[in-house]
Design a protein around this nucleic acid. Structure first.
Lengths: 293, 293
DNA sequence: AATGTGTTTGACTCAATAGTCATTTTTACG
DNA sequence: CGTAAAAATGACTATTGAGTCAAACACATT
């Protein structure tokens, strides 16, 4: 069993409940069933531990949505909603992590953590921006900050609602709901009925570092692998069949415990086609790094 | 000089910047220029200190808006916007407190603090509800939770934007902006184009304790004093003149350092009318408790 | 000046806890 | 097996910081 992962999971659970400062290394150790000293063979310090937690979970939660974004099968509006849905599903799955994250209280603002939060926000905003432009074209630009800001706040607050209570918020409905509300607000802006309040100048602190590579390098690689695979498929004649297979891979990979055998099988189907072989193998290596015999 | 107040202010400043756990009593003492021991003559514990901070500032920030709500001169829509505006002005004035509040991290969830947060949220929601019903009538009821939730999240996130950056968000514009967005969403709901996602059942945790007396008793009294004064004025013939005076009182009282002499003078104007004398005196006692000779 | 009252002080206690490291236990392998 | 390397342990150290309290101080009253 992976002890490192066990420690991360126990720590998330405790920190979500009691907060960073009120969770001692001893408690974490007890909860995992190892000694305190052992923790320090995996993480050089408490702060490193929480940073590792962020590194571990962040991608798990956010990567999902970006992959859905690449699937050209869905029309933009539905795809946007689906992305929210997938995101919410992720949040539900990693409830404890999100709780911890939303508490906000962590080590005294280390460089590293701050940079991480920064990148996360940047990613969220650039993702929203991409979707807005896809949906409404360039003419949405003057209103994008207002829309993005409101979307982000609604998204965040529904996230909080989702993880705090036991109520039955369905990710699918929630995704549709949010996109619907954005749509209403966007159309109102486009009709010239409201004036925007925020502009580039004002939002500079949020736009620097937006959509920058370097962040999430491992994720970046994976995203590119997906992208190039999808592109190759679209050039094919029987794209429909391969898209279906690829979507199935995407679905499986989004699970918290993807079935490796199923994945390997699905990849085998793609590799049958000479045109796709290379790209598929590339993605497979990204998703299933272990044992390529 | 009021040492107690000085301590509260220094503490807010420090806690806003570094967080509750990373601000020691020693630092607070140093910042005020007294000894650590002295703090304990004013506040029995660190936790009591932060609770006192909340008690001190909460009303300052939130009371304002409710008073504006009583002025029947403004049409509902404009009044709603004005209330937001006034709220944002308050937030700007007590930036450090809001920063501290938004950090969220405080003593390990004491009963008292939790109850306070609960009451605050309850007040916010019941205030929103009142305004929604005033604007759209009872038919808004099925959609009220969705609207309130989105409004609350937009409001909160703009608050964060306001206090975090030095950008020039103008409270007046912001107030109008928010009401405008609510209006768009509300009209869409009323047109039957969107379906609500939240309902009473789901939102029970937020609705219990909504609009309950007992919370903010001192404020409650003051609110009633305002209410009955406004009512008396409306029954008068020259209501216009007295309304103007009363609005001026309201404006003055909203300042962080109301001019007592001005206030007394304004009240004198009201007390000149026999019909108003009693109510005016009542409110005067609420607003200017000291030295009634 | 003397006395008394209330305030202020800062050295001290005491608990919590991050991080260390010599010792013990487990594992790996010849 | 036996032995060496790796991993795990928990007693120990060092630090931080909340809260205490006897002594010093300030100030008023007589």
């Amino acid at each position: 069993m992976d002890k490192r992962k066990a420690i991360l999971e126990a720590a998330v659970e405790l920190i979500a409940e009691k907060g960073y400062t009120h969770t001692s290394m001893q408690q974490i150790a007890d909860s995992v069933g190892v000694s305190k000293g052992s923790l320090y063979t995996f993480f050089p310090s408490k702060e490193d531990l929480i940073i590792s937690i962020y590194e571990h979970y962040q991608q798990l939660v956010f990567e999902r949505a970006f992959v859905v974004g690449l699937d050209g099968n869905l029309p933009p509006y539905e795809r946007f909603a689906k992305q929210f849905q997938v995101q919410f599903e992720g949040i539900l799955e990693y409830k404890a992590y999100m709780k911890m994250h939303m508490r906000g209280e962590s080590a005294q603002s280390s460089e590293k953590l701050e940079g991480m939060g920064h990148r996360m926000r940047g990613r969220l905003f650039s993702w929203l921006e991409r979707n807005l432009i896809e949906l409404y074209g360039e003419e949405i630009a003057p209103y994008k900050w207002d829309l993005m800001w409101m979307t982000q706040s609604i998204y965040t607050s529904y996230t909080g609602l989702m993880i705090s209570s036991e109520n039955e918020l369905v990710p699918e409905q929630l995704g549709k709901h949010i996109v619907r509300q954005i749509d209403i607000l966007a159309k109102d802006f486009l009709a010239g009925k409201s004036n925007p309040l925020l502009d580039d100048q004002m939002m500079r602190p949020f736009s620097v570092g937006m959509d920058r590579e370097g962040a999430f390098t491992s994720f970046e690689k994976r995203e590119n692998a997906w992208k190039s695979l999808y592109e190759s498929i679209h050039q094919l004649d029987q794209s429909h069949y391969y898209l279906e297979v690829t979507d199935r891979i995407s679905e499986e990979s989004r699970k918290s415990n993807p079935d490796e055998i199923v994945m390997r099988g699905l990849f085998q189907l793609l590799k049958a086609d000479d045109e796709l072989n290379e790209k598929a193998q590339l993605l497979e290596m990204q998703l299933l790094p272990g044992s390529e015999h």
